[in-house]
Design a protein around this nucleic acid. Sequence first.
DNA 1: TCTCTTGTCTACTTATTTTGTAGAGATAAA
DNA 2: TTTATCTCTACAAAATAAGTAGACAAGAGA
Lengths: 159, 159
Amino acid sequence: MLSQKTRYTIRALQHLADCWQQGVVRLDAIAEEQNIPRKFLTVILSEMVREGLVVSHRGRDGGYELALPPVDICYGDIIRLTRGSLALVPCASRNAHETCANCLPEADCRLRGLMLTLRDEMAAMLDRITLADPITVEAPFAETGMAQMSAKSEAAEPI
Amino acid sequence: MLSQKTRYTIRALQHLADCWQQGVVRLDAIAEEQNIPRKFLTVILSEMVREGLVVSHRGRDGGYELALPPVDICYGDIIRLTRGSLALVPCASRNAHETCANCLPEADCRLRGLMLTLRDEMAAMLDRITLADPITVEAPFAETGMAQMSAKSEAAEPI
DNA sequence: TCTCTTGTCTACTTATTTTGTAGAGATAAA
DNA sequence: TTTATCTCTACAAAATAAGTAGACAAGAGA
């Protein structure tokens, strides 16, 4: 699972992407519209500033904006930044590899083999979709009967 | 990330798959060969028995074996059993849907849209590969220069 | 039947991670 | 100089994960 913090981060960045080139956005505006605890959001956005994804402006009329055009920020990068890795198992990370505790030697671990393949497949998708992509949202499960989703995101087609 | 417990579970099941139709396997044998804390493994295997994936035999000469042929147990099912869901976000689960706390209405949440697509892609892979599939393991990162992996698993080809 | 081996179950303990909050500072505009 | 903003470190509380204890049940064989 993505942690709550990672989810907040992504939604905050989506919000900034939506406001791209419309001036800075105040923290309180993001917190309110995205339903994120204000104090927690200060921590999150400060981290994003340190990581270079967001630029802040202090003082009166201050706020935040993306440091890059939304099209240059992909979901894979955001998740790697906040969570360290895309992989579902530490030994299958290509960016933050760590050997697992209490495991077999890596060369023998089939779980690792599987998770590496999965990681690569996830990366192929998450590195392709950016904050500029529109994403169509399937209706909630309760109300409907599934799947209107699937498309593969070329240019500006709904995902 | 998959929890340590989920990883132990998968490796224990892989071990039982390897011993399929060779008689029961004692808990201690699994614990030793798979490097899993013995007491913790009792909890894990008891759960698998309750879930119907494993059959146990008590008393002297007792042990465990898979309840089904390895080819009928896919990784997707194992992860769903141990973890509740394949999805990376509770609101994107198709089996254990839950609305996220502090979120937008589901119909407006682009993160959910993205995570649904990702979930379906992960499921397509994890529901196809079973405990009977051989899985080739890429050499550990430290020793080599990446990627010998990728294949898509048809029939009994290495994954 | 007795005993030994092996699995079962419930309840705990401990460690780690996650989620948030407090509060004193820095800075920029008016 | 005042006020609206962001910044930073540290802490607290809650939730989750990992692992252990220990009494119990059951089957095989002497």
